[in-house]
Each structure stands twice: as C-alpha cells, then as structure tokens.
C-alpha cells in the first residue's frame, strides 16, 4: 500500500460514454483472441499463443489512462495491451498469421506484437526481460524533458526474476517515470503463486525500492483507470516510478497447449462471475444504458474483428528477400 499521500487529485469519475468506449475495446480484444484461439486450434497459424482473456480490464483501464505519446511495454501475453494502445486489429491479425502487412512484417508473431506508431514499444517473450528496457524508454523522455510516462505490464511470475529487482531498484534511484503494472493472474505458467512466492501481496515488494505500491482489483476497469491516472500524473511531475498490482485471472491456460487442469474446482467459475466485461456491462446497465445498446456493441465489436480478420487473411506472405532484411540498418 502506498506509504505517502498522492499529491495529485483523483481524476473525475469516467463518463458513461468513456466507459462505453472502454467496453468496446475490451470486447474487440475478447473477440480478437477468440479468433486467435480458434485459428491455433485449427492449425491455421504457427507457434504458440498466450491469451489475456479475463485480463482485459487491466490493459484497457491502464492504456486509457495515458495518451498516444506515452509508451507501453508488455509481455508475450500482449495482444490486449497492444490493441488497447491503439494498434489496428487487421495488422495485428496479419502479424499472427505471418503476413507481409503484419505489424512487424510477419517477423515477430503473436509474442512480439509491436506498433511504434501508437507507442506500443514492444511485446517481449523472455519473462521479465523487458522490465529493464522500460527504464530506457522512460529515461529518453526524462532526458529530453518530455512529461511522458511508460507503462510496463508483466505477470506475477516476473516478480521472481532478477531483472525485476534490478529494474525497480534503478528506476527508483533515477526517478524514472515508469508505472510498473503487475497483472497478478495467480499463476506463473502452471504453478500457483503460493507455491513459488512467499508473500501474497506482490505490491509489498515496492517497499524495498522506496516507491509506492498498491494492490487493486484488475477486473474493475474504472478502478484501474483511476489508479493509473493518479500515478501517471505523479510520474509526470517527476516523482518517479510506482508498482501497481492488479488482481485478475487468466481464464484460459498458459498457452494454447495448456488445458489448465491444475486449477482447483470452482476457481474458474468464480472468476467468470467477475469477468471484467460482464462487470462493466452490469455497471453500465445500472448507469442507465439499455441492454439492447450493449448487445449492439457486442455485435459491432464482433463484426469489426471478423472484418479485420478477413482483410488480414487476404494479405500476402512476406517476400523471400525479407528474410535477410532488418538484421542491420
């Protein structure tokens, strides 16, 4: 929990229109990954895929709390963060399909979605490997005296890797404007957190780096948005990094080959009751939105995803000469 009072005011509550827009993006991510899952299951695309289904509230709440000039780094479970930051659905699909028009020209794949044009600086496939990189991204803004922040998403498993310690320590010493966002989905690959980590509240680790740490409900998108807005304002003012632990749940297995049979009976069902999309829909209904509007939004998002996929599937494979390009300048 934060040891100091925030010097910035809480942002005003989000308007229903803003929250409707968040829901739209969350639904796009959900349907996008439904299609990813289906294509992998059918053998239409290669390698592996790591779905963030159930965790959309964290990435959408956080990315909507910052601007296009702010930067985001995320993990191999990064479809949601990159789309939430503004990457186009069709080129994201195309990347996963290995197409020439993919975000990374088909050379990155599902685990490396990157779109510099929208500040999605990278998706990284070495657990924790990108935490030190977030320092450099934030340092550049600090060095050039721009008031930008860097969001760095990672999972609970990353907090046990050495790079976590080095990154949070040095970020604090250099007062870098990084919001470290731990998506605590309770499992590091197949292992429950309790079997790998001697504490339950990972935000406590912030204490040893002299930075604020806070645990929040990651499935409450408005709560995520509010917390990240606060801390982003603090970081822009030069007060340095923070650690946000967002409690959430990975509704699917670690990767496409994992049926997640290690989960205790009833756990998934309990978390599905707290699905971030369902929670937000219910909230918007309470705010007066008609169910029909919400159903229309689902249909719209699904259609957008299907149209994007159709475009992506029609695009060509990379040309053979691209194999040896982009190694050096």
């Amino acid at each position: 929990m934060p040891k100091e009072n925030l010097t910035v005011a809480n942002p005003p509550a989000a308007t229903p229109e803003e929250q409707f827009d968040w829901l739209h993006t969350m639904l796009q991510i959900r349907y996008f990954e439904d299609e990813c899952h289906r294509m992998f299951a059918q053998g239409l695309v290669r390698g592996s895929t790591h779905l963030c289904q159930g965790q959309e509230g964290v990435v959408v709440g956080a990315c909507r709390a910052v601007g296009i000039d702010d930067k985001v780094l995320c993990t191999y479970r990064g479809h949601g963060a990159v789309i939430a930051k503004g990457a186009p659905l069709d080129r994201a699909f195309a990347e996963i399909l290995g197409k020439a028009n993919g975000l990374c020209a088909g050379k990155g794949g599902s685990m490396h979605l990157t779109d510099m044009a929208v500040g999605a600086v990278g998706s990284f496939a070495i657990v924790g490997g990108h935490l030190p990189i977030a320092l450099g991204v934030a340092f550049e803004a600090q060095y050039n005296e721009r008031q930008e922040v860097t969001l760095c998403f990672f999972g609970d498993g990353s907090t046990n890797i050495g790079a976590f310690h080095e990154a949070l320590n040095m970020a604090s010493v250099w007062k870098l404007p990084v919001i470290f966002i731990c998506e605590n989905n309770l499992y590091g690959e197949y292992s429950p957190l309790a079997t790998t980590t001697p504490i339950e509240r990972l935000a406590q680790r912030a204490d040893s780096y002299g930075m604020p740490g806070v645990t929040i409900d990651g499935n409450d998108v408005e709560g995520v948005w509010r917390t990240v807005s606060d801390y982003a304002a603090r970081a822009r003012a030069g007060a340095g990094p923070v650690l946000v632990e967002a409690l959430t749940y990975r509704q699917k297995g670690h990767s496409r080959s994992d049926p997640a049979k290690y989960r205790p009976t009833g756990e998934l069902e309990a978390w599905l009751e707290r699905d971030p999309i369902r929670l937000l829909e219910t909230k918007l209904e309470h705010l007066g939105l008609e169910r029909g509007h919400l159903d229309d939004l689902r249909a719209t998002a699904e259609q957008e995803v299907m149209d994007a996929l159709e475009r992506a599937r029609g695009w060509p494979d990379p040309n053979p000469e691209r194999l040896e390009e982009d190694v050096y300048a």
């Binding site: 600086v121 990108h130 030190p132 320092l135 450099g136």
Partner: peptide
C-alpha cells in the same frame, strides 16, 4: 548506476529504441 548489469543493458536498449 547500481551494480545492475541487466538494468544497464535494458536502459541502453530502451533509450536506443527511442
């Protein structure tokens, strides 16, 4: 910097990318 080679290299990477 601290004695943190991973942080040093990471900082170099992020700053170079930017």
């Amino acid at each position: 910097t601290p004695i943190s080679e991973q942080a040093i290299i990471g900082t170099a990477i992020g700053a170079a990318v930017m």
